[in-house]
């Protein structure tokens, strides 16, 4: 932390920067959640249990990382869980029609990318508003899954495909292990952090979010950047869908239903601005951990998954209202 003083402010620059940073809110919330959870329940001191439950949320978290970039660029993608479902379903359908599992996985990934391209064409090239398009495509993708398998569930995958999250990276204690999916998630998080905050591509994403017209005039190819964001989103969502299928051992058309709000909560709690131009991969990472701990805490406290919707909804409202209050007060002062 630097020691130099800013004029008129009695605070070291580093501290001031820290207080105004977007990651502060999720970080404080994370500490609060950890304190409450650990003091309430024994199981939170059990690393084995935590790692096991973490692998249950990790697939959605992977897709959330890309959603951060999309929100930073001033758009939104509500179709992420549907893409996960669609690509997993089509991979499973292919497998059950005699395609080898390895090829089926590749098909699933391609399906995810095609979904992303579909979104991208409609949003970037046709110029339709992202939120309504993805509300529509959300139904389209899940509808495709439903057409193919109806109310059935497909399972019976080969042994090497099942339960990837149980492949231990390294073990600790008696039964504890860190699964390979957690490693993939961390690697993806680092990759997207570098992409968003350390490359020209990332700066362009910020530029589009802050002021799209200005970005166009300064020579950014906004269409191709938007398109690429949705293709990346589709690809990672497809990959996450296949990991989910491997964890659940089967696939149904209602896989990950109603989790759109979770993804958006994680991104917005992480300090991304819904109007675009601001976003932080570290913040999203912290928010993911926080939401995971909160959900686990609620389950331990005996709140059912249905009733958790209430908490997640409130959390979303709070996460958008708090930063907005700051700007509203500022606007009042400026008057």
């Amino acid at each position: 932390m630097s020691k130099e003083k800013v004029k008129g402010q009695g605070m070291p620059l580093g501290l001031r920067k820290l207080i105004h940073s977007r990651e502060l809110v999720p970080f404080v919330l994370l500490i609060a959640v950890i304190i409450v959870c650990v003091s309430l329940s024994e199981s939170f001191r059990d690393m084995t249990y935590l790692m096991k439950t973490l692998s249950r949320y990790i697939e959605l978290a992977m897709a959330t990382l890309v959603l951060t970039m999309i929100v930073t660029a001033g758009m939104i993608d509500l179709s992420v869980p549907s893409v996960m479902c669609c690509s997993a379903t089509l991979a499973a359908v292919c497998f059950h029609h005699g395609v080898p599992m390895g090829v089926a996985i590749v098909i699933g990934l391609i399906v995810g990318m095609v979904c992303g391209i579909f979104n991208g064409i409609l949003i970037a090239h046709v110029g339709l508003p992202a939120m309504i398009v993805t509300i529509g495509t959300q139904n389209v993708f899940r509808g495709i899954a439903q057409i193919f398998i109806g109310d059935q569930s497909l399972g019976k995958f080969p042994d090497w495909f099942n339960s990837w999250e149980k492949i231990a990276l390294f073990r600790f204690g008696t039964t504890g292990y860190v699964g390979v999916t957690i490693l993939i998630f961390v690697l993806l998080a680092i990759f997207f952090y570098l992409l968003l905050h350390r490359t020209s591509y990332g700066r362009k994403v910020f530029a589009i979010g802050a002021n799209e017209r200005a970005a166009i005039y300064s020579g950014v190819n906004t269409k191709s950047i938007k398109m690429s964001l949705f293709v990346i989103s589709g690809f990672v969502s497809g990959f996450a869908g296949i990991l989910t299928m491997s964890r659940l051992l089967l696939v149904r058309y209602d896989m990950n239903q109603n989790t759109e709000v979770d993804t958006v909560v994680m991104v917005l709690l992480g300090g991304a601005d819904i109007n675009g131009g601001r976003g932080s991969m570290i913040g999203t990472f912290i928010a993911i951990i926080m939401v995971f701990l909160l959900k686990t805490g609620l389950i331990v406290a005996g709140v059912t998954a249905d009733q958790q919707m209430f908490v997640m909804g409130l959390l979303l409202l709070v996460s958008v209202i708090i930063p907005n209050i700051k700007t509203l007060i500022q606007a009042q002062k400026d008057k």
Binding site: V261, I274, M309, L316, L328
Partner: peptide
């Protein structure tokens, strides 16, 4: 002054959860 889609995405869950 928060975009309606985000607010109602939150309240869809809050209201449905409250119903449960």
């Amino acid at each position: 002054q928060i975009p309606s889609i985000i607010v109602t995405l939150g309240t869809i869950n809050a209201y449905r959860g409250l119903t449960y």
